[in-house]
Write a protein that binds this DNA or RNA. Structure first.
Length: 452
RNA sequence: GUGCCUUUAGCUCAACCGGCAGAGCGCUGGACUGUGGAUCCGGAGGUUACGGGUUCGAGCCCCGUAAGGCACCCCA
């Protein structure tokens, strides 16, 4: 019978609970990414989820309509952070005297966007950001691209390429097409769809938005040109030689591509892609994006240089560049291809308990914990040992200690490897060693047996 | 935010043309066994996502809401 006044348990669209099995995978992936960040000298930072609305607005352009904003109980206008980059800019401006520049920080935390939820896109999702504030050098951009490539490789993403473009180059394309600054966004959006709708589709969209056929042709020719980055940059240089800003952007990209091999980023990992636009208004220089072909979850990482953003809080400009990895999209890919199989439990060993062995089992569990093992003690003495072994196997625990009353009398216990069924009877004094041995054997057997 | 599709027990899914809402697994009580519970007997669990409407009668048809999926927009 339903209790009167019972409430429907629910969560909002685009928001999720993470059960233990999912948390184990999430924590593993976050651990891998954090390790890459720290290997490159980035240090941790955290900031509030909620910011004053004036801190958040005026940076993301059109996207601001996706921001969660409301009035708090004290009448303040506040918003949930939309990304981790704007809070970083605020921190740099507020705490500049306490920071050492170039400031390299990483930030792994949830952000919120009021979008329609889909596979790989949620209203609450985690970003893993690594940024460098205080360096205008292309060395900083090369480093963050290297971090991006390394992190994606570390979680095992297959066929992952990093597209690279430059905001000023894109702006120059629009100028070359005779489009004023106001209409440039339309041009960017059309070009950005090249992969999806093809050259003809882009041409149609450009002409629909009032751009001449001649200009459309010139833009498409530059955007679709094939060849290695150096050759294409040279070609652009001759095509845009009247445009000083375009020249500067080309120089920067040339420098960036020149650095990448020494930073360990192979040529086939990166692609100079003039069609990459990226939406956030605050990007000012090189922009990056990592995409996977399968499954279709959009980009798994996005990034770029934003030399003007910190200045909006400070009055003087502080150059900055950085990357953002999308945790949930990376997880979608990892799950799709089972890229990180293995441990499904945080527990090493389960100790079964029977009606007659409660105290013995509890003491054994305590001794195993003293030996640095993670131990789950059975709580259901009425259940048979077989039932308890099944419980442990379902939780993904690799090893069980099963002790019948007869074992207690003999001073022994059974150590059972749950993935293989192999078991041995050992003296209680040898139990810790035997459990460690079973765990090593389980590790050696590898993931193939782990879901048996 | 817009459009299309989906929603039946904890899970996976049935239910003819609109005619008594079901199965397997799981859960649970017991028998029997002290080692992945095999086997046997019993039980609970549903306002068919939610709210309206049409009809003698709605899981099925119509409208609305919510969630999930897909596309757009945008993006991690």
């Amino acid at each position: 019978m339903k209790a009167a006044g019972r409430r429907e348990p629910r969560v909002l669209s685009g928001f999720r609970d993470f059960l233990p099995e999912q948390m184990l995978l999430r924590q593993r992936i976050v651990g891998v990414i954090r390790a890459v960040f720290e290997r490159h000298g980035f240090e941790p930072l955290d900031t509030p989820a909620l910011e004053l609305i004036e801190v958040l607005t005026g940076k993301a352009g059109e996207n601001e309509k996706l921001m969660y904003r409301f009035t708090d109980g004290g009448g303040r206008e506040v918003g949930l952070r939309y990304d981790l980059t704007v809070p970083l800019a605020r921190v740099v401006a507020m705490h500049q005297n306490d920071l050492v520049f170039p400031f390299k920080r990483y930030h792994i935390a949830p952000v919120w966007r009021a979008e329609r939820a889909q596979r790989g896109r949620f209203r609450e999702f985690w970003q893993c950001d690594a940024d460098i504030a205080g360096s205008a050098s292309m060395l900083a951009d090369a480093e963050v691209v290297a971090v991006m490539a390394e992190a994606l490789a570390a979680v095992g993403l297959p066929r992952c390429t990093i597209r690279i473009n430059h905001r000023q180059l894109l702006a120059a394309l629009a100028r070359a097409a005779g489009v004023d600054a106001a209409g440039a966004g339309t041009v960017f959006r059309a070009i950005d769809k090249l992969d999806k709708i093809g050259p003809d589709g882009v041409a149609r969209e450009l002409e629909d938005s009032g751009i001449t056929a001649g200009a459309t042709g010139r833009i498409l020719a530059m955007v679709t040109e094939e060849g290695d980055p150096a050759a294409r940059l040279a070609s652009l240089r001759s095509g845009l030689d009247q445009d000083a800003e375009a020249m500067a952007a080309i120089d920067q990209l040339g420098e960036l591509f020149g650095h990448l091999p020494a930073f360990g980023v192979a040529d086939e990992v990166v692609r100079f892609d003039l069609s990459l636009a990226r939406g956030l208004d605050y990007y000012t220089g090189p922009v990056f994006e990592a995409v996977v072909e399968e499954p279709k979850v959009g980009s798994v990482a996005g990034a770029g240089r934003y030399d003007g953003l910190i200045g909006t809080f400070l009055g003087r400009s502080v150059p900055a560049t950085g990357i953002s990895l999308g945790l949930e999209r990376i997880i979608e890919v990892v799950k799709e291809f089972d890229l990180l199989p293995g441990a499904t439990s945080t527990t090493d060993v389960f100790v079964a308990v029977t009606r007659d062995t409660v105290a013995d089992a509890a003491q054994i569990a305590a001794r195993l914990r003293d030996q640095r093992l993670r131990v789950d003690l059975g709580l259901q003495p009425a259940r048979s040992l077989g039932d308890q072994a099944k419980y442990a196997a379902r939780k993904g625990i690799p090893v069980a200690v099963l002790m019948s009353p007869a074992d207690v009398g003999a001073g022994t216990a059974v150590v059972r490897a749950l993935h293989t069924g192999a078991q041995t009877t050992v003296l209680l004094d040898d139990l810790g060693r035997a459990v460690h041995e079973a765990l090593r054997a389980d590790d050696a057997a590898g993931p193939a047996l782990s879901d048996a």
